[in-house]
Amino acid sequence: MLSGPPVTTTVNADQLLERFLAANPRQRRSLLSQVLQRSAELRPLIPGQLDRLDATSDDWAAGLLIQLLVADDDSLTQTFRERYSEGWLAVTSASGIDYAPLQRALVDQQFEEADRLTSEHLRQLAGEAAVQRGYVYYSEVPPIASVDLESIDRLWVMYSQGRFGFSVQIRLLRSLNGRWDQLWPRLGWKQGGVWTRYPRSFTWSLEAPEGHLPLVNQLRGVRLMDALLSHPGLQQRVSA
């Protein structure tokens, strides 16, 4: 008995979106290319989905949908930006820091600007002395409120498809049994902790290695990064 050509079944945009949001991390990665390819179909559906999602989590699926939504300069983008002028993800600060500019930079995938803002916020959180000198001492990290480091990390995770953030760096370091010398190449940083903010020294896109951003000044060794990654607020996020 002759059989015809195989029938290919393509899910509609609603089904793809529902499947993507309900998927586990591994399934979501496999669906990512389809979502990106069909972004034009999905964009009109995204505002309704965002109303159903938790703005206090850091599920990067929501961050991706937001980035697809604002990719074109049209009425959908305009409406979203007006409605969420402070950013869709709900973040808080014990020090009164406004994280809206950081969220906007990450939404627009302006990762170099987001990294600059992150360094600025860390100095603000460390205190006036750090702001004046232009960098943070490792000893100034432990008193920083957990909620602020959590907010910064959640923003990076949310808008990087789960690829960037302090918590991502912690997981990588743990997977290497705390071997800092092995962490640098995994992050795409220069061996030995050499650090510079020259644009050509780093990759300011999602093409960068996992954990590549945000940057931490290593001119004085690993103590600052160790203090950050050892902070209870960030450790709790990884253990949760």
Rank of each mutant, 00 (worst) to 15 (best):
P209G: 03
Q15W: 01
P5D: 13
S205C: 05
R220T: 08
E86H: 15
Q49W: 11
D58N: 10
V70E: 02
L17Q: 12
W180C: 06
H231L: 11
M158S: 04
R179I: 06
Q15N: 05
V131S: 04
T203D: 15
K190P: 04
R237G: 00
A40C: 03
L16N: 00
S57C: 08
A13E: 14
A13S: 13
Q218E: 07
T196S: 15
I170T: 12
L187P: 09
Q49T: 10
R19L: 05
A130S: 15
L2K: 06
S93A: 12
R237F: 00
N24V: 04
Q37M: 13
Y137D: 15
R179V: 11
A100P: 10
S30N: 08
E86Q: 15
E112K: 12
I170S: 07
R83F: 00
W195N: 15
P6H: 09
R28P: 00
E128P: 03
W60E: 13
A208Y: 10
Y159V: 02
L117N: 03
P143W: 11
Q132D: 14
R104V: 13
V7K: 13
S201M: 15
S30Q: 08
L65T: 01
E150Y: 00
Q27R: 08
A62I: 07
F166S: 04
D115Q: 10
L42H: 02
F20A: 02
S146W: 01
L155M: 09
L215P: 09
R179K: 14
R104W: 15
R200G: 14
G134M: 09
Y137T: 04
V147T: 15
R43N: 01
D59H: 06
P209A: 05
E120W: 01
H121Q: 10
V7W: 12
Q235G: 13
H231R: 07
